[in-house]
Structures are given as C-alpha cells and as structure tokens.
Simulated scan of single mutants.
Amino acid sequence: MNSWMEIEEFSGLMNLDISAIRSLIDEGKLTSKEEEGQCFVEVSRSAQALIPATKGIVLDETYEGSSVSLSSEFVEKTVGAILSLHEKVLDAKEETLDALKGENRFLKEALFSMQELCDEDRKVIETLSKQLGLLQDELEFTKRKYKMMWNKAVEGYTPPSK
C-alpha cells in the first residue's frame, strides 16, 4: 500500500527544497503523481531513495573521546552471531522442555503405580484384618469351650481316697 504526501509536507519532512525534490522526481529517484493541481510524493520508496546506504557505522562518543568506525560487515557478523546464539538458546530451551515433559510423564506413571500398590496393600490389610477378627472370635470361643469343659471336670472331680 502506497502512502502519498504533498510535496511541501515532504519537503519539510526531508529538509529539502521543493526544487531539489522536483529535480529528484525528474531524475526518477522519487515517485510522484499529480492530482487536482497538487504534486504528491510516494513516502516509503522515496524515503529509501533519499537515505544513503552507509558502509559503516561511526560511533562519536567512545571511552576516551576518540571515534570508532564499525564496518557493516562487522555489524552483520555480530548480528548473525547474536541470532545464532539466540537460536541455540531456543533449541536448548526446547530440549529442556522435552526432558522435563518426559520426566513429568515418568513421575506421573510412577505415581499411578504407587497408587495401585497402595490400593492393593489396603485390600490385603482389609482381608488380613477380617481374618484376624475371625481368628480372635474362634479363639474366644475355644477358650470358653475349654473353660466350660474344665469347670465340669473340676466339679465332677473327686479326689482319690487313700
């Protein structure tokens, strides 16, 4: 989508004379159109044509007041290195997340296994408790039975005479 601006407004924005802008239009460096007697300049392509491509970046203020010039190749390599490191960090993050997900699955399975063992142990304890109750009842019955038998035996016992 093209965005158009009046030549006067474009002149103020780019800090150029209208005559300089008209000569750039004549040279074909700027795209323009005429509507209702006014000249409009296409902003995005024209701005790109007017901004010079630099081969390096100059930093004016540095450590001891001297200026340092950075080549565009250095900047591109630096940005490339940063992007490469960023990709490696993202890959490491993905690997870590995958490892954590695997560990969580393992822990979840272990928890379910422990829950099953606990349920089985509860059933065994319940069964053993019932058996213990039955054996205690049987023991009490046997005690009463022998006590009654011994009481009868003691009552019916007559000591031998000499």
Rank of each mutant, 00 (worst) to 15 (best):
residue 110 A to Q: 14
residue 65 G to W: 05
residue 120 E to T: 02
residue 112 F to S: 15
residue 152 K to M: 13
residue 66 S to I: 14
residue 92 A to D: 03
residue 9 E to N: 04
residue 66 S to C: 07
residue 140 E to D: 07
residue 21 I to V: 06
residue 121 D to C: 09
residue 29 K to R: 13
residue 30 L to E: 06
residue 144 R to A: 02
residue 122 R to D: 07
residue 135 L to W: 06
residue 161 S to T: 11
residue 151 N to Q: 14
residue 121 D to Y: 11
residue 76 E to A: 10
residue 54 T to D: 02
residue 104 N to E: 08
residue 53 A to Q: 15
residue 133 G to I: 04
residue 9 E to M: 10
residue 60 D to R: 11
residue 127 T to Y: 03
residue 81 A to F: 11
residue 80 G to R: 05
residue 120 E to H: 06
residue 151 N to Y: 13
residue 6 E to C: 07
residue 39 C to H: 03
residue 89 V to D: 01
residue 83 L to R: 07
residue 102 G to I: 09
residue 132 L to H: 04
residue 151 N to C: 11
residue 8 E to V: 15
residue 157 Y to T: 00
residue 128 L to F: 00
residue 147 K to I: 12
residue 38 Q to L: 04
residue 117 L to F: 02
residue 68 V to S: 13
residue 123 K to A: 05
residue 146 Y to V: 10
residue 102 G to Q: 12
residue 134 L to V: 11
residue 7 I to F: 05
residue 155 E to H: 13
residue 65 G to P: 08
residue 146 Y to T: 04
residue 23 S to R: 13
residue 37 G to M: 02
residue 114 M to C: 07
residue 30 L to R: 02
residue 59 L to K: 09
residue 85 L to T: 01
residue 37 G to E: 06
residue 102 G to W: 07
residue 53 A to K: 11
residue 73 E to R: 13
residue 62 T to F: 01
residue 63 Y to F: 03
residue 7 I to Q: 15
residue 131 Q to R: 12
residue 67 S to H: 08
residue 2 N to M: 05
residue 4 W to P: 04
residue 156 G to E: 02
residue 154 V to A: 15
residue 146 Y to M: 07
residue 13 L to D: 12
residue 67 S to Y: 08
residue 24 L to A: 10
residue 71 S to L: 12
residue 122 R to P: 00
residue 90 L to Y: 06
residue 123 K to Y: 04
residue 3 S to R: 03
residue 53 A to P: 03
residue 66 S to G: 06
residue 30 L to C: 00
residue 153 A to D: 05
residue 69 S to Y: 04
residue 6 E to V: 12
residue 58 V to N: 05
residue 133 G to H: 14
residue 73 E to I: 08
residue 42 E to L: 11
residue 132 L to M: 10
residue 92 A to P: 03
residue 99 A to E: 11
residue 100 L to D: 03
residue 154 V to Q: 12
residue 67 S to R: 07
residue 46 S to P: 00
residue 73 E to L: 15
residue 110 A to M: 15
residue 35 E to C: 10
residue 10 F to W: 11
residue 30 L to N: 01
residue 151 N to D: 14
residue 89 V to T: 01
residue 121 D to L: 15
residue 93 K to E: 08
residue 78 T to Y: 08
residue 131 Q to A: 04
residue 8 E to Y: 15
residue 4 W to D: 00
residue 20 A to L: 05
residue 90 L to C: 07
residue 113 S to D: 11
residue 67 S to T: 13
residue 25 I to S: 06
residue 147 K to W: 09
residue 19 S to E: 08
residue 65 G to Q: 10
residue 26 D to Y: 08
residue 48 Q to L: 01
residue 33 K to F: 04
residue 125 I to G: 12
residue 22 R to I: 00
residue 124 V to S: 13
residue 133 G to M: 12
